[in-house]
Design a protein around this nucleic acid. Structure first.
Lengths: 213, 213
DNA sequence: ATTCATTTGTGAAAATTATCACGACTATTT
DNA sequence: AAATAGTCGTGATAATTTTCACAAATGAAT
């Protein structure tokens, strides 16, 4: 779809830029420089300008960027004009946290259905999201392309298979399992234990001295 | 500390390798090739060999790697012989999920204390972890160098300041706020909304066709 | 013993990402 | 109107990360 010429590293930062532009807009600011933005999102200002430049000349020399214009641009680039429905699989502690988390603000991504293997949870409603039994995937997953996976690691592989069969195209995997999927399915991993361990490792082996000027 | 010659990209993968080696070891396997490992952790086998090579010649040509040996090596590299205490700041939904999450398995990182601004939570115990009031940071944070930040975004900046004052050196930040810290403090961000938005963006703009052979 | 299928470790190349540094342009002040 | 301070966009460069591809070594099979 469209130009796949935007570097992945840039693409990953877009949602971040988007959020901060929203903040600025709500604060009533209508002008921002790459330097200011840099301080807010902790990304080098040259990197920000380079990132923006992939989409054309969005700013004005000697002035900066118009917040509203930039925001509008990113809104359409990030497809924020249409709502994306997301299913949450596994209503445990972490899953519940997601259901109560409001993605809503400044964001058109919504968790619209939750699924869990526990029959007692089916039929309930958490954070305004209806919970169904995991066996109802086939009936309820119609039209949903993205799933958040917060089930126990032992279940990850088998449930992933079901999700794939139901036509899910993207999975945000919070389980420690590295799930196997067909090539056309995109999986992003967020491994909490690995992140923590990694932080501890960096702390001990990479003493910080200078990061930026 | 020690050789800071290991690329950051490699360092981030170490905990992942460590976990899978543990799995293999528990399954009773005593030999593994980079190719097998590659399939398990979804990292190119050449990358794995390169990663390992930074620590010297850990394998044997034509044979692969000895699981137990490699595991022992990583255990000491990742400082798994000594326990790292971690404080959890903000016992909301996400924080509670962490407290109930067992990092324990194969891992010497422990959340030993929780803190929250709600006086009703102080004095309680979640998942075996005692919860204190946020005002008790000074008394209770002695000797703890790492904190997980799961407070509301609005509180992130002010609480971070307190943590820094108490001598915290590493923060795993789950709030959407990009916190400001002195140069010697390491912060890793995990931004749930950004991750989800990013996944959706990739889904729409980067159709997958071929990833690996 | 010899052959054969494996598999590591790594030089070299490729790909990706980040940063420097500056010309060109803008707004503001004097 | 001229001078000044600020800012973008980007060519060029640097830094980092990944991947290719193969010699050397190993173990198993014949």
């Amino acid at each position: 779809m469209e130009q796949s010429k935007i570097p992945q590293a840039t693409a990953k930062r877009l949602p971040l830029y988007y959020r901060f532009l929203n903040n600025l807009n709500q604060q009533g600011k209508n002008r921002v420089s790459s330097k200011e933005l840099s301080e807010a999102v902790k990304v080098d200002s040259a990197t920000i300008r380079r990132d923006f430049s992939y989409f054309g000349a969005l700013g004005k020399k000697g002035y900066g960027y118009n917040v509203e214009y930039l925001l509008g641009f990113f809104r359409s680039t990030l497809d924020q004009h249409e709502t994306t429905e997301v299913a949450l699989i596994g209503v445990g502690n972490l899953g519940t946290a997601f259901l109560n988390y409001s993605f809503l603000k400044n964001n058109n991504i919504r968790i619209t259905k939750g699924f869990d293997a526990n029959p007692e949870k089916a039929g309930t409603n958490i954070g305004g999201v209806p919970i169904y039994h995991i066996d109802e995937l086939h009936e309820k997953l119609e039209g949903i392309r993205v799933a958040i996976l917060t089930v126990p690691a032992t279940e990850a592989e088998s449930i992933t298979e079901k999700l794939v069969n139901e036509g899910i195209e993207g999975i945000l995997n919070f389980t420690p399992a590295r799930i196997s999927v067909p090539e056309h399915i995109r999986v992003h991993h967020i491994d909490l234990a690995v992140e923590l361990q990694s932080l501890v490792y960096f702390l001990k082996h990479y003493p910080l001295d200078s990061k930026k000027k």
